[in-house]
Design a protein around this nucleic acid. Structure first.
Lengths: 99, 99
DNA sequence: AAAAGCACTTTGTAATACAAAGTAAATACT
DNA sequence: AGTATTTACTTTGTATTACAAAGTGCTTTT
């Protein structure tokens, strides 16, 4: 057996970033407040994790409006989808013998 | 969709502890140096993660000898196996829609 | 004009990770 | 006998990360 963790993506060590990514994989776009409620975290904390993911080019955002209220929606990028899937595959491989 | 991350176990956020657990799930017992080589980390770092897992009662250890050299082997506890499997199930559920 | 909502940024603190060095107990070399 | 080596740590120090709370700028609602 060789190193099982070397293919895990450090960005996805964080449970919150995992949660964000899984929400964005399933839903084509999710807005700030939906994510905040979904993950039950403060807005500052959410913003900082979104920033990390954005800097990695794993997500993108679009500022818009719902009616007259500002509304920022987030979605996953190709890069992000690829990285996330690779991480999941590495996880699966690592724990494959378990179930 | 409700909070996807609330059932994730914080102890398993760490890639190294994930690696230790996955090694121990697959192999009935693994010694210190095997783990160290497998995960490619320093002994101090490994010891501290083992301590965290031991304090959670997820692993147990047994001090012994190979020939005349000291040898500490680690294995998973019932509690640890249960917690790990629950974590994996939570992960699967979270990302189930992906693959 | 005041209050509230949105999506942040900034600030400060606490927790965590990690390498490196130190330690203890035993064995192995010279 | 004395020194070195190995194992499995513990301790120490530093850097990174997480997070809450407070503050900001813009807009809308009252």
């Amino acid at each position: 057996m060789k190193n099982p963790i070397e293919h895990l993506n450090k960005i996805f060590d964080s449970r919150i970033r995992l949660g964000i990514m899984s929400a964005l994989v399933v839903n084509s776009s999710v807005n700030f407040n939906e994510l905040k409620e979904l993950l039950d975290i403060t807005d500052g904390n959410l913003a900082s994790h979104l920033k990390t993911l954005d800097e990695a080019a794993y997500i993108k955002f679009q500022k818009g409006f719902i009616g007259r209220k500002t509304n920022t929606t987030y979605s996953i990028t190709k890069t992000g989808e690829k990285a996330f899937k690779q991480h999941l595959e590495a996880l699966e491989k690592m724990i494959g013998a378990v179930k």
